[in-house]
Simulated scan of single mutants.
Amino acid sequence: MDYENSLDRALTETPEVGDAADRFQVPDPEVRPEGNVTIYENFQATYDRLNRDEEHFLKFFQSELGTSASIDDRGRARFTGDFKQSRVADALDEYVDSFVTCSECDSPDTRLVEEQGATVLKCDACGALSAIPDL
């Protein structure tokens, strides 16, 4: 087998590699009413997938939905009031835009860090530091 044939074979057998946005999938929120509260069933799986602290994640939802909330013994969020799945999904999208994806390269490989007394979003892919909104 000559070089050109080997190269062609290697290129056809090499899997396509997408960018970070392609491999990053945010779970859709599983929301259901229970009496006068709304239960976010996969709350724990979502903040684990986003690699964020549960208290920060919950505090954002409390602020965004304008309600009180708690985490039950099964890791579910309980929001006081009736919230549709689409409203919770919109809030989740806002969280991802503000606190997860890098504003420079759109990578989800970020973390919240303290820099000079302020919490900022640090991108592990490009190294950018971005301001985040106050909660």
Rank of each mutant, 00 (worst) to 15 (best):
L92W: 08
V113Y: 08
F43G: 03
Q116V: 10
T67H: 13
F43Y: 08
F61S: 07
E16N: 12
P108R: 05
A77T: 01
D134L: 10
R78D: 05
C123A: 10
R52K: 13
P108V: 04
V120A: 09
S63Y: 05
G81Q: 08
E94P: 02
L112K: 10
V37H: 05
T12Y: 11
S86Q: 13
A10V: 11
A20K: 02
D73P: 02
S68D: 15
Q85W: 11
E4Y: 12
A21C: 05
F24M: 03
E104Q: 10
S63M: 01
D82E: 13
Q116G: 10
I132S: 01
S107H: 04
D134H: 12
R87S: 11
E41G: 03
P27T: 10
S70V: 11
E16V: 15
T110H: 07
C102P: 01
P133D: 07
A69E: 09
F57N: 05
L58W: 04
A69H: 09
S103A: 14
N36V: 12
E115H: 14
R74Y: 04
H56A: 12
L129V: 09
V113G: 07
N42E: 13
E34A: 07
V37N: 01
S86L: 12
E64L: 05
E41M: 07
E64F: 07
T101I: 07
V31S: 05
E115D: 14
A77F: 01
T67V: 11
E104W: 06
C102G: 02
A77N: 02
D2F: 03
C105Q: 06
V96M: 07
D48N: 15
E54G: 06
N36H: 14
S86K: 14
E13R: 13
S63D: 03
R78W: 03
D124N: 09
D124I: 04
T80H: 13
Q44E: 15
C102Q: 02
S130C: 07
D124S: 08
E64Y: 01
E55D: 13
G18N: 00
T14C: 06
D124R: 06
E41S: 07
R9V: 13
Q116M: 09
A69C: 13
P133W: 03
L50Q: 05
P133K: 06
Q62K: 14
